[in-house]
Nucleic acid binder design. Structure first.
Lengths: 246, 246
DNA sequence: TACCGATGTTTCACACCGTGAAACGAATGG
DNA sequence: CCATTCGTTTCACGGTGTGAAACATCGGTA
């Protein structure tokens, strides 16, 4: 039962404190302490350390903590968005063609992360910040990132994921097989009501799954019929984007 | 004499490990250990912890460490108040690398304005006050701010500008095309004798031209050969700075 | 094949460092 | 003016992070 730990508790706690800021940008010490379940005193020392290195700063007005510029500085060195920059042109082309928001997701462990996005210019549109982290269980892109993954990896992930109540693993696996056959996945008001999405896989030249390209918008515009119609365009764009990768 | 420390050593060390990635995106364990001056064993545990939380990942091909997507996720929640402030870190790094004065120019109508600068620390150096306003007709940064602007805007500006005597608009436009192809611009004793500069464009994520990053110094140090050599570094820095923008 | 150096990984005993209870100070407002 | 909440500091204790050393794996070299 007990897994051997080779990690450092104090560091884990510090990182957990940082991660608190992914659900709100401004926090007081006591709030953070409650959230991570640690003593005020401990969190105070953690924050002092993070502040000294510039990972958090104190808002002068509110006296609360927020993330510091060191994070931004580091984010410039995450190579994950390098290919994403190259792909931006192709994504803009697709946006102009379809008029909806285009996103690029990669899998990170049991989540997916939006590494690039171009927004729809319509009045009613999905907004989608780069860097957003979403569960791998729901949404068209999640299904793509699972369905086209290597079998061994996929099975490991399916075992590891915790499923929301109404979902059944067997039925889900069947759905994934259909997605592989079709070459793309859709979701209709699956993750959030009123929203729909269609997603296709991007493979690197090596054949390895790199990302999921998704088109998302309001479900009254992105109806199942419309999605079926534009699927070939999205698959083609995803294929082109794959060739841009090493 | 001795300052009381209220920080946590293990956390400080972990953050230092993260900061190593601001001077190179790929590192091996031993390299990192040398850089931060810690024992291999210690760094190994730190990295294992950072990896568990997704702050670093191991490149499958090279087996080396790089920053993980958690950083990107956090960066989405940092409020970048003033872009010029955010970019200062990157500019300081470039200054340390090249030893010359680094400036950041944005276009304001038919002028350019220096909105940020870090000075060379050499005895003979260009001095460059922030806020300085210069004509858009001469200098490497001017050419960048024109060459990479949207065609319609560029043409309007070219018509509006009043040209100094010896310049010809047709020849200038040809020069701008070459600059777009090269990805950077240079100037050698163009605006003031004894001075040279090299400049690259900074694009926001949206693809919009935001500013020109320039390296300037005495023309005996910044020879054409030297500028050609350091151009890739400047372009890379400008690219990173672009990712810091919304 | 045997050897080497360089890499990442694991083990282990010890001291030191991180921990949380508690007490403190400061600000707010009822 | 007391009560409450927040951030800060102190301190003794024991757990926890530490680095030397040994181990494991590679590629490269002779």
């Amino acid at each position: 039962m007990e897994e051997e730990k080779r990690t450092i508790r104090a560091v884990e706690r510090a990182l957990d404190v940082l991660l608190v800021f992914t659900s709100g940008s401004e926090w007081g010490l006591t709030e953070i302490a409650q959230r991570v379940g640690l003593h005020k005193s401990t969190v105070h020392r953690l924050l002092a350390t993070l502040e000294q290195r510039g990972f958090v700063v104190r808002d002068e007005a509110t006296e609360k903590y927020r993330l510091g510029l060191r994070i931004l500085e580091l984010s410039a060195y995450t190579r994950a968005d390098d290919p994403a920059v190259v792909m931006r042109g192709e994504m803009e082309r697709l946006r102009d063609q379809l008029g909806e928001t285009i996103s690029l997701y990669v899998r990170d462990r049991t989540d997916r992360v939006r590494i690039q996005a171009v927004q729809s210019e319509q009045a009613v549109r999905r907004v989608a910040p780069v860097g957003a982290r979403l569960p791998l269980t729901v949404g068209a892109s999640s299904k793509v990132l699972l369905a086209f993954e290597a079998p061994s990896v996929r099975d490991a992930l399916l075992s590891e994921l915790v499923w929301p109540a109404p979902m059944d693993r067997a039925a889900y696996e069947e759905q994934l097989r259909e997605i592989v056959a079709a070459g793309y996945a859709t979701s209709f008001e699956e993750r959030e009501p009123g929203a729909a999405a269609i997603s296709a896989p991007i493979f690197a030249r090596s054949g390895k799954l790199y990302a999921a390209l998704s088109v998302s918008g309001p479900s009254n515009r992105l109806t199942p019929d419309v999605m079926r119609e534009v699927a070939p365009d999205i698959i083609a764009a995803a294929k082109r984007m794959g060739t841009l990768l090493g």
